[in-house]
């Protein structure tokens, strides 16, 4: 008995002596990928872990000096950073919550096909495809209290509306609004996929069983969409936690430090002033641990949903 592999290798060897063997081909594909991964992911990950325990600046010629947990101690004792964390938490909760509500709502409206529903769906998806920096700049103009269209649409007479980006109370909300505008379509897209997978006969069965629309929504629609909705929420949470570009484009962290998110501060720490590489590595690791922790909670819940 010959296996398929035997025959392959025999004919291969007989007819094309110069051809690459399967094993060689495998190596050819594998090594460059592995090399890139090690060079650009694994090495920086480990090196920054090492740096987080040192006093080091990327622009100084001094070699990293081991200082143990000092960087972490500094960060966790820094009252200012705790404010940034609180800002970030508030920002993440608000934007993810509104994105979920708006996105799911739009998905419910667009699930039934009607005239023009295809083009409307496409138009809604456009914000998602824009660069966050460009979006930030555009919205900065739209928020402008003098000539911006945002206040005009809200019905304020020219020049009388609030200055969204320089009001300490409104600035974080302004960033949240832009994030929701940009990413609610993403939640909608995933929800639409989930909704279209629900078979019609379930709704017919529910109608026969005399369930009302609200009961049907809670007992059939929501549980069926839940896994995909949760994935959308997970991705958005991770992304929102790392928000940097939008804030830089809109407020630059101001007014005061009301929109200073952790990722923004991380950037300042690492690349502005004295390039505090050691401390910023430590902060990056703290963010990594938090995001990993939150993601794990989601994933565990997701698995529980899927099992059920």
């Amino acid at each position: 008995m010959y296996g398929a592999k035997d025959i392959e290798s025999r004919t291969g060897r007989a007819r094309q002596p110069a051809a690459l063997s399967d094993a060689a081909l495998k190596r050819l594909f594998l090594w460059p990928t592995l090399g890139l991964l090690i060079a650009f992911n694994l090495f920086p990950l480990l090196y920054s872990l090492y740096l987080s325990f040192t006093d080091y600046s990327a622009i100084s010629s001094r070699a990293p000096q081991w200082i143990g947990l000092q960087n972490y101690r500094d960060i966790l004792n820094d009252g200012q950073l705790w404010i940034y964390f609180r800002n970030t938490g508030k920002y993440v909760v608000l934007s993810v919550a509104f994105e979920t509500l708006v996105g799911f709502g739009m998905a419910l409206l667009l699930r039934r096909k009607f005239f023009g529903s295809g083009i409307i769906t496409t138009l809604i998806l456009i914000p998602m495809m824009c660069s966050p920096v460009v979006v930030g700049l555009f919205w900065k103009m739209m928020y402008n209290p003098g000539y911006g269209i945002f206040n005009y649409l809200l019905g304020f007479p020219a020049g009388r509306g609030p200055d969204w980006l320089s009001s300490p109370k409104l600035a974080l909300w302004a960033v949240v609004i832009v994030d929701v505008w940009m990413w609610a379509p993403y939640v909608m897209l995933l929800c639409l996929a989930g909704l279209s997978a629900i078979p019609d006969y379930l709704y017919e069965a529910a109608e026969i069983d005399r369930a009302g629309p609200l009961y049907t929504f809670w007992r059939i629609t929501l549980p069926q969409v839940a896994p995909l909705l949760l994935i959308a929420v997970l991705f958005r949470t991770i992304e929102a936690f790392k928000t940097f570009d939008l804030v830089m484009g809109l407020t630059g962290g101001g007014p005061g430090d009301t929109t200073e998110l952790v990722a923004v501060d991380l950037y300042r720490l690492a690349f502005l002033g004295q390039f505090n590489t050691g401390k910023s590595s430590a902060l990056a690791y703290i963010v990594l641990v938090i995001i990993t922790g939150v993601s794990n909670i989601y994933v565990r819940y997701l698995n529980k949903l899927k099992e059920g």
Binding site: Y201, L202, E204, A205, I208, R219, I220, Q224
Partner: peptide
Amino acid sequence: FVFQQYSLYPTM
């Protein structure tokens, strides 16, 4: 109504 394809609620 007893459906040919059963139509049970899958999450329950």
